[in-house]
Design a binder for these strands. Sequence first.
DNA 1: GTGGTCTAGACCACC
DNA 2: GTGGTCTAGACCACT
Lengths: 128, 128, 128, 128
Amino acid sequence: MDVQVDVSSRVPIYRQVCDQIRLAIALGKLEPNDRLPSVRELSRQIVVNPNTVARVYTELEREGVLNTRPGLGVFVAETRSDLTRKARREKLTEQLNIFLSGAVHLGLTQDEVRRAFEEQMKKFQWKG
Amino acid sequence: MDVQVDVSSRVPIYRQVCDQIRLAIALGKLEPNDRLPSVRELSRQIVVNPNTVARVYTELEREGVLNTRPGLGVFVAETRSDLTRKARREKLTEQLNIFLSGAVHLGLTQDEVRRAFEEQMKKFQWKG
Amino acid sequence: MDVQVDVSSRVPIYRQVCDQIRLAIALGKLEPNDRLPSVRELSRQIVVNPNTVARVYTELEREGVLNTRPGLGVFVAETRSDLTRKARREKLTEQLNIFLSGAVHLGLTQDEVRRAFEEQMKKFQWKG
Amino acid sequence: MDVQVDVSSRVPIYRQVCDQIRLAIALGKLEPNDRLPSVRELSRQIVVNPNTVARVYTELEREGVLNTRPGLGVFVAETRSDLTRKARREKLTEQLNIFLSGAVHLGLTQDEVRRAFEEQMKKFQWKG
DNA sequence: GTGGTCTAGACCACC
DNA sequence: GTGGTCTAGACCACT
């Protein structure tokens, strides 16, 4: 678990950390039942207030990504999805549009984006 | 130019409008040197405080997406890109990773995501 | 909106407030698009730290019960449910078992509980 | 006595065990004067720290649900109720309200909830 | 004015 | 040791 925080970014710290933990899990760098660093440990490591880290863990627990075992620590949860198929497709399209409109705005070509997409996709842990 | 504002979204209104204007340009619905509605016009149209619209235009001008010709109105700027090729690729990868971790967590398969990706990509106006 | 907080309870304050707001909505005392008191207002009213109230609002927003319009305040959201039918039935049964085992433990009879159930149920705003 | 502990739940282990013992009594699976497994026995069986089991028994004894006969073991107490009739009705209504607001928010109809209620109620061991 | 984020530091419950 | 909750107070972004 190496987490990088950019304090000068406009993205809130707790969001940066959330994103990185989600990413690590999606990439398979963290697997179900792996233990994460303790709140105090991680807060020392990335030089951030313990409350901020606690907030990250709380938030990811509510999302079902992590779960905490009182007195033991915080662990990666088993994956599950309560969402309907339709809701999931909608969320996907929504996220996709945000991503693609950013890509267009960067002035990249369709092929560049497709290549990057295919390349990155290999690195993730897919379901099927 | 039809802009839809969702007041019940957690995304700030000014950002929603910014994103939609950028998107319209990315999709080719707005082309360089097209004139945008005036601040008052647009604020009436989408039922939003004029200050908020003014801010949107200021911000997009600062980004180099729009430019104001005093007395004439606000226009779509010629596309240009300040970012180096390398910086743009890095930004792309970063956004891609956030998008893909979300997709993995939704429990979708690689094929489902790829299909949605190809389908949505058609709708955008690419450079190359 | 009258909210009662019992500081001597073992139930955390933020949870007491959450429960009462959810209840008010379920009873139809608060309807979609009604505005809630501001964070500072409610925190003064119930004599609790503003952060605690902010936490309540954040949590209920994540649940989809409320949504906040930046600069304007916090509002009751339109109801929606992304959950699958199966997930909803499971949650219902789970909550029901907790409730019923509490009721048995109180030493009440089946009829007493059924009567209370039918009586309270009338007061809520049901979907069908 | 089969007790299932879900370590990935946010409910503390000791409460899970307490709840399940109370539930077993409510369902009539355990009757007054039945003997429970010893602390060591149960802790081995459910793979939990013996201290945690000891705490469960202490707590349930304090509540009057169990009682310890030194040298003999731990037994289910005779049912008794300290609460006044009025206090019990109030507690019932309070729990009912929390349960029903959850049910409303799940988007279920009155009939669905009533059917689930009647079905689950059969499984419990009532007083009257 | 509104809510959102972060820090600092305290106390409690759980194992 | 672990995380959870609450307070106090600061600063920022949005309308």
